[in-house]
Amino acid sequence: MASIETPIMQPLRAIAGDWKLLPSFMPVPGMGALAVNSLVLNCSEPLLVDTGLAALRDDWLERLGEVVDPVDLKWIWISHADADHVGNLAALLEVAPSAKVLTSFLGMGKLAMAGIRPERMQIVEPGGLLEIGGRRLLPIRPPYYDAPETLGLFDPGDGLLFTADCYGALLPGPVERAEDAGVQALREGMVQWSAVDSPWLGQVDRDGLGATLKAFGALAPQCVVSSHLPPVAGGLETLSPIIFNAWCRNGGGPADTFHVEAVADVLHAAA
């Protein structure tokens, strides 16, 4: 795995059934590289999941065009409103006149404040059911996340589970498959990313998180795609135990040095 200094776009890849992956990586100085994935469901009502990095706009739009002409795009699923997920949304909506944005209630509010017109959006929430192109997609809230509007999705037909930031990892460099990173690098990268992206995991009820991870596994996906990790074939048997062992055992994961009690101790010591 070679390190990178600028964002890079990788070739388009088929991953599960009618799903295609638009993979990219961005450098995280001092920490490695982070995958930034978009997905396309190539069906009678083409659906895009997240819109990639603005820094890669031309390359990203070119990759998208290899799957679907933006004019034919019907749906754009926005998992949450972070810049690495909505980087090309405004530009895409200009060339995709028929596309409607799917996001949660809070996501709609954030996108509206960013200038996306409400009539271009439709609210979806966990527990609902979305019928698109002759198949059913289930909006789902991942076990952990960095933004409260986050929505993953599960496609039972093709067995694909999209988990947004959940199960992401900081890796030494770009790879095509998660397993190509190696067991140790994957484990360390997932723990490091979860600590950075979801620092509240250090304060969460460990039994509750463990139960959520177990329930998530009951979906029995055949392909797992995080926004920030290359695809993992099979179920969650590799990924969920890493998070469980990091945050649900032995008092939880890495200490949050910015926790309010830690700050108070520093101030007290300096007094």
Rank of each mutant, 00 (worst) to 15 (best):
L56F: 13
L111V: 07
A269S: 14
P199G: 10
Q10P: 06
N88L: 06
V86L: 08
W60L: 04
E176V: 13
Q222A: 13
F162E: 01
A33M: 06
W247Y: 15
N88M: 03
D155P: 06
A14F: 10
D155L: 07
K20I: 06
F244K: 04
P11S: 08
M121Y: 05
P148F: 02
V36Q: 07
A233C: 13
M31D: 08
I8S: 06
A90C: 11
L129P: 06
Q122F: 09
V232N: 00
S194A: 15
L209E: 05
M9D: 06
A55C: 14
L102D: 00
E119I: 11
T257Y: 08
P148T: 11
G128D: 10
P199T: 09
I15N: 04
H85I: 06
P139L: 11
V224S: 03
L170Y: 06
P241F: 05
H268S: 13
P172C: 07
D72T: 12
D205A: 13
A33V: 08
M1Q: 10
A255K: 15
D72K: 15
E119S: 09
V175F: 04
S79L: 05
F216C: 04
L22D: 00
S79V: 05
E237F: 10
D72R: 15
D155S: 12
L39P: 03
G134Q: 12
K20V: 13
G115N: 12
S24L: 02
L186D: 01
G109N: 10
A185V: 10
A81C: 13
L102I: 11
V225K: 01
Q192S: 12
T238I: 15
G52D: 01
L130H: 09
Y145K: 03
S24V: 06
D59Q: 15
L160T: 03
R141K: 15
L22K: 01
E119G: 08
Y145I: 02
P221S: 10
F258P: 07
V36E: 01
A164E: 00
M113W: 11
G109T: 08
L64Q: 05
H228W: 07
E66Q: 15
E179G: 09
P143N: 04
G217V: 08
A271P: 13
V263S: 11
L239F: 10
E94Y: 11
G234F: 00
V67E: 01
P118V: 12
K74S: 12
L137T: 04
C223F: 01
F105D: 11
L229D: 00
G52S: 09
L213K: 00
W75L: 04
Q122H: 12
K214D: 15
L209Y: 03
L219S: 04
W247M: 03
S79C: 10
G128C: 10
D69V: 14
V183H: 12
A91T: 14
D180H: 12
G251Y: 10
T6C: 14
M108H: 07
C248N: 03
D158Q: 12
L213R: 01
N37M: 02
A195S: 13
F154L: 04
E62R: 15
C166I: 03
P156A: 12
S194I: 08
E188T: 08
P231A: 10
